[in-house]
Amino acid sequence: MTEYKLVVVGAGGVGKSALTIQLIQNHFVDEYDPTIEDSYRKQVVIDGETCLLDILDTAGQEEYSAMRDQYMRTGEGFLCVFAINNTKSFEDIHHYREQIKRVKDSEDVPMVLVGNKCDLPSRTVDTKQAQDLARSYGIPFIETSAKTRQGVDDAFYTLVREIRKHKEKMSKDGKKKKKKSKTKCVIM
């Protein structure tokens, strides 16, 4: 069974824990209790493949930012979460993405942009803004509501699919490099 290491990042209060708990335990946590770091595991079937999701729910508070490099190193894919009623959390996505790329030393890291709290009427981040940002990053965008469960499975499952595509691409690139290195030079 394939294991996928997913990391949920975003500013404090955007609903990272609520999304994760909704996926794992099928219930909505409405009281806000700032996370330092929590880890969850769940076995699911995605596109006919049974897999184990190892999900790291991270601290959004700035005082825990020193811990970010460590979990970013171990993560295979990242859910970059903002709240649709919090423009600052949307603007912060850029910083999370840049930090992930720096730590992973790669421009090509599996990510999904997630606009959470889409059940709320007080939207300050337009869907088109988020779609445009995701398009500019070359990553999928999904709106979710941890409260109603809308888009929750889709967000995590899409990230797994992005990781699969990335692994497939990397193995193809690896095979191309191996083929090239088999060419021999004969000096007579």
Results as ranks from 00 to 15, higher is better:
V125L: 10
V125E: 11
V125S: 09
V125Q: 06
D126F: 15
D126N: 14
D126Q: 07
D126R: 04
T127P: 05
T127L: 13
T127R: 03
T127H: 10
T127M: 11
T127S: 13
T127C: 14
K128E: 07
K128M: 10
K128Q: 06
Q129P: 09
Q129F: 06
Q129M: 10
Q129N: 08
A130W: 15
A130I: 15
A130H: 07
A130F: 15
Q131A: 11
Q131S: 09
Q131D: 07
Q131F: 04
D132R: 03
D132F: 03
D132I: 03
D132C: 04
D132H: 03
D132V: 03
D132Q: 05
L133G: 03
L133T: 07
L133V: 08
L133K: 04
A134N: 02
A134P: 02
A134M: 03
A134F: 05
A134L: 04
R135H: 09
S136W: 01
Y137I: 12
Y137W: 14
Y137R: 05
Y137V: 12
G138I: 00
G138W: 00
I139E: 01
I139W: 02
I139A: 06
I139V: 10
I139D: 02
I139P: 01
P140G: 01
F141S: 02
F141R: 01
F141D: 01
F141T: 01
F141A: 01
F141N: 03
I142L: 07
I142K: 02
T144E: 01
T144S: 09
T144Y: 01
T144F: 02
S145A: 14
S145M: 03
S145G: 11
S145V: 07
S145Y: 03
A146Y: 00
A146S: 00
R149P: 13
R149D: 10
R149G: 15
R149Q: 06
Q150V: 06
Q150M: 11
G151T: 04
V152K: 06
V152R: 07
V152Y: 13
V152C: 09
V152A: 09
D153N: 10
D153T: 12
D153Y: 11
D153L: 12
D153E: 13
D153S: 12
D154Q: 12
D154H: 08
D154F: 05
D154M: 08
D154C: 07
D154V: 06
D154K: 09
D154T: 10
A155G: 05
A155R: 00
F156H: 01
F156P: 00
F156T: 01
F156Q: 00
F156V: 11
F156C: 02
F156M: 10
F156A: 01
Y157S: 14
Y157C: 13
Y157R: 14
Y157F: 11
Y157V: 15
Y157I: 15
Y157M: 14
T158F: 05
T158C: 05
T158G: 05
T158L: 09
T158K: 06
T158I: 02
L159S: 00
L159F: 00
L159I: 06
L159D: 00
L159A: 02
L159P: 00
V160S: 03
V160K: 04
V160P: 00
V160A: 06
V160Y: 05
R161G: 12
R161Y: 05
R161S: 12
E162I: 02
E162C: 02
E162K: 03
E162Y: 02
E162D: 02
I163C: 08
I163R: 00
I163W: 01
R164T: 14
R164I: 15
K165Y: 03
K165N: 11
K165I: 07
K165S: 10
H166V: 10
H166P: 01
H166R: 12
H166W: 07
H166K: 08
H166L: 10
H166M: 14
H166D: 10
H166A: 08
K167W: 02
K167N: 10
K167A: 07
E168V: 03
E168L: 04
E168G: 05
E168A: 07
K169Y: 12
K169P: 11
K169F: 06
K169N: 12
K172R: 13
K172E: 14
K172D: 12
K172H: 14
K172I: 15
D173S: 12
D173I: 03
D173W: 02
G174L: 13
G174W: 00
G174R: 06
G174N: 06
G174F: 00
K175G: 13
K175W: 03
K176C: 11
K177D: 14
K177C: 12
K177L: 06
K178T: 14
K178D: 15
K178Y: 10
K178C: 11
K180R: 05
K180G: 14
K180S: 14
S181F: 01
K182F: 02
T183H: 12
T183L: 00
T183F: 00
C185Q: 15
V186E: 15
V186L: 07
I187D: 15
I187C: 15
I187K: 13
I187E: 15
M188Q: 15
